[in-house]
């Protein structure tokens, strides 16, 4: 099977994820879309690893998974605490990062 197809799939997944981040309001969904983008990248890495015949891409994919896991922990904690204080999980209700 042509490895390029995996790359097309990765691009498709990434686009879906990016569109989700931009369009959806619910923080949980936005979060899941971010994960989708990360995994799209992982797929691309693994594909390239296969194409180039070395393990670099696969190693980086593992790194990404670890970072993603850590991110999930922090991100979910923030979302939960925002939900507790504001009773909403919509990203448009929170603009605390403004100067």
């Amino acid at each position: 099977m042509n490895p390029a197809n995996y790359l097309y799939l990765a691009a498709l997944l990434f686009t879906i994820g990016a569109a989700g981040v931009l369009i959806r309001r619910n923080a949980i969904v936005v979060f899941m879309c971010v994960e989708l983008m990360l995994n799209a990248c992982n797929l691309a890495f693994v594909t390239f690893s296969r194409l180039h015949g070395n393990l670099d891409g696969q190693v980086i994919a593992f790194f990404t998974m670890v970072v993603a896991a850590a991110e999930v922990v922090v991100g979910l904690a923030i979302i939960v605490s925002i939900y507790r204080s504001r009773h909403s999980a919509s990203v448009d209700d929170a603009n605390l990062m403004k100067l």
Partner: peptide, 17 residues
Amino acid sequence: LRRLQNGYVRSYAVSML
């Protein structure tokens, strides 16, 4: 320039993209 910094995550995401 400060007005660009509106605090909405999604607008940041758009500019990043």
